[in-house]
Amino acid sequence: MEGATLFNTVFLTALFSSGVRQSVPLIFGSVGDCVSEKSGVMGISLEGEMLFGAFFSYFFALQSGSLWFGVLMGAAAGMVSSMLVAAWSVWLRQDQSIIGIMFNIFAAGFTNFLNRMIFGTSNANISIETFQPIPLPLLSKIPVVGEIFFHQNILTYLAVLLAVLTFLVMRKMKLGLQIAAVGENPKAAQACGISVYRYRILCYLFCGCMAGIAGASLTLGTVGTFTEAISAGRGFICLAIVILARWNPLIAVAAGFGFGSIQALQIRLQVQGSALPYQFFVALPYLITVLVLVLAGHNIRAPRELGVPFERESR
């Protein structure tokens, strides 16, 4: 179990492969949040929308027998539930943090309630086949790297694809510029004829949709069933990833992968056995996130009007 045997190719392949798997919900969530934060709305309620997505994707996949239909309904559930938050925080101009926290508590309780109402207390019996890994032709043949990145389930590829598309829209298209304008200086944007409310609400719905898919990736991509509070804080990690990635969807992919890999590493270090208390390992991913934020976060600049409700008639 010494270092020499520990960090061999087999170990590293398994480690990073697990890192990729664990990063999928984080990538969906943080890419969605990148967009909504760019427009000035914080995605505090990501956690709750993830839960809605997780529950409904599982429910509909089970009913219809189709995983894709499940993912679709998960995305829809995330989006519909985010409407509530969007209406509240954009249209009614309430404090986004408070709405977000309230929504998360509501989502946790409500999905538990639905789960018990529909499946009773022991739904664990009802598990479905999850998305299986699909090796990409040619790419998966590359030694080590192929096994890590190109031997994953379809949601993983979808996550990266959506991240790239989002990046292109945000950086290369007029739409992205308009979204950024809404988040930086909504008054100026409005003066140019951009509807701030509409942009913010649509961006937030996109975020909710992504959070819903993130939830679906937990139930349909990993576990195969819905367990209560399955999101387990991933929504909040996404918020940290977005800051770390400086609102850049591509860096968010890398940051999500980093977090997932550290999580995979801490499990493996525990498996190898250590005299350190387990709390150290459990805290490790979060500790490193904070450290990276402190070390690399000196010149991070958030969208100027992030979290500030916009009043159309204000001066």
């Binding site: 697990s18 387990a232 459990v282």
Partner: peptide, 19 residues
């Protein structure tokens, strides 16, 4: 032995067992 530090995270439980 692995202590996951949570009783709720089934996805983490799965990754732990895979490791």
């Amino acid at each position: 032995t692995v202590i996951t530090g949570t009783f709720d995270d089934s996805a983490l439980g799965k990754e732990t067992a895979i490791a």
